[in-house]
Structure formats: structure tokens, C-alpha cells
């Protein structure tokens, strides 16, 4: 296992980088979409809330592999030719946006109504309330489920290997077929995934501790 790590260090590192780039871009893009959709879900306007709900149901209710295949095969059908890696980022983004919208919706609903009423009575506008009062608190409240989501996306990014994106999983497959040491190779890959996820969990726990009490508003 360690032999594999040492001998194929550059390829594995490259694969891991791709894994991280794909996952983290999807998380970041999904965050923007997810926050917007969370307000959509909570909107009083049916025409806004209903499509958001449907979107959330579909992307949360079907296997992500199926979603990936659908996006990958469908894009060329409608005349969009993009590299597999972008199809992968697109799918992961659309998927995580649905999950993040639900995380943020739940986080927002946990903020006492009194705070929002107090801000409104002070004449602060709706968007200012969202930006300066709701969201800073929501990020603290949702840090644990958000960390879970990041880890989930990192793990799920392994399946984009099926559309030939050379991320960590795909690189391991290539090494395994070349060295005829599948057990050692996949164990090495497992170790890398585990290490990244453990670091993520630690960073998140650290941030959570830091954020308790004094919380920067900007």
C-alpha cells in the first residue's frame, strides 16, 4: 500500500488535486445557488416556492450517479459539447445546491423571529436583514451539516470516474490495472480520501469552536 503511494505519488497527487478542485468548485457554486434557493423555498410566493421544492425533491430523491449519467448524455443531445470534467462539476453543483438549500432553509428557520422583527422595526430592508443579520448566524448554525455535505460531495466525486474524469478514483483504477495490485492501490486511495475528510472535519470543528460567542458580522 505504501509502496503504491510512493511509486505513483505524482499521478495520485494529480488525481487528488482534480478531486479537490471538482468538489470544492461544486461546493462553492452550490453554496450560492443553495442560499438563493433557500430563500426561494421560504418565499410566500407560490410560483417561486413550488419550483424550488420540485427541484429539491428531484435532486435529493434520485441517485447522484443517475443524475451524472443523465447530465453527461443529455448535454450533447441538446447541442452542448463540454469536457467531462465540466459536466461533472455541473452535476455535483446542481446536486449539492439542492442539499444545501435544505440545510440553509433549516438554519434560517432556527433564527428567532424576534430578531428579524426587531431589525424590521428599526427600518432595515429585507435584503439588508438577510445579509447582515440572518446569513452570518446561519453559517455558524449550519457549519456541522455543511461540513457533512462537503465530505459527502468529496466522497461522491469518486463516481465521476465513470465519465472518464481522471480524478483520484480513476487514477487508482489506472494504477491498479497496470500494477495488478488492486487491493493495495484502492487501500492507498481510501487512505487519501480518509485523510482529506479527517482534515476537513478537524478544520470544521476548530471553526465551530472559534465561532462560538464572538462572531464577526462581516
Amino acid at each position: 500500500m505504501f509502496e503504491i503511494l510512493l511509486n505513483h505519488y505524482p499521478a495520485l497527487a494529480e488525481g487528488l488535486t482534480t478531486t479537490l478542485v471538482v468538489s470544492l468548485s461544486a461546493i462553492a457554486l452550490g453554496l450560492v445557488l443553495g442560499v438563493l434557493m433557500a430563500f426561494g423555498l421560504m418565499s410566500r410566493h407560490r410560483l417561486l416556492a413550488w419550483p424550488c421544492g420540485l427541484y429539491r425533491s428531484f435532486w435529493r430523491g434520485t441517485p447522484i450517479l443517475l443524475q451524472l449519467l443523465l447530465v453527461y448524455y443529455l448535454l450533447p443531445e441538446v447541442g452542448i459539447e463540454i469536457a467531462p470534467i465540466y459536466a461533472a462539476i455541473l452535476t455535483l453543483t446542481l446536486n449539492t445546491a439542492a442539499f444545501q438549500s435544505e440545510i440553509f432553509r433549516s438554519g434560517i428557520s432556527h433564527i428567532p423571529v424576534g430578531q428579524i422583527e426587531a431589525a424590521r422595526m428599526a427600518g432595515i430592508s429585507t435584503w439588508q436583514i438577510r445579509k447582515r443579520i440572518i446569513m452570518p448566524q446561519v453559517f455558524r448554525l449550519t457549519l456541522p451539516p455543511l461540513t457533512n455535505e462537503i465530505i459527502t460531495i468529496l466522497k461522491n466525486s469518486s463516481l465521476i470516474s465513470v465519465i472518464a474524469v481522471t480524478e483520484l478514483m480513476r487514477v487508482s483504477e489506472q494504477i491498479a490495472s497496470r500494477t495488478f495490485q488492486p487491493l493495495e492501490t484502492y487501500l492507498a486511495a481510501a487512505l487519501l480520501y480518509l485523510a482529506v475528510n479527517l482534515v476537513l472535519a478537524r478544520v470544521s470543528a476548530y471553526l465551530e469552536r472559534r465561532m462560538v460567542g464572538g462572531l464577526a458580522t462581516e
Partner: peptide
């Protein structure tokens, strides 16, 4: 929690 199911299946 830390290892993808896909890796486990391949293992």
C-alpha cells in the same frame, strides 16, 4: 464516513 462507498466496492 471518510471513505467513498465506491472505493469499498472496488476493494
Amino acid at each position: 464516513r471518510g471513505i467513498p462507498l465506491l472505493i469499498l466496492l472496488f476493494l
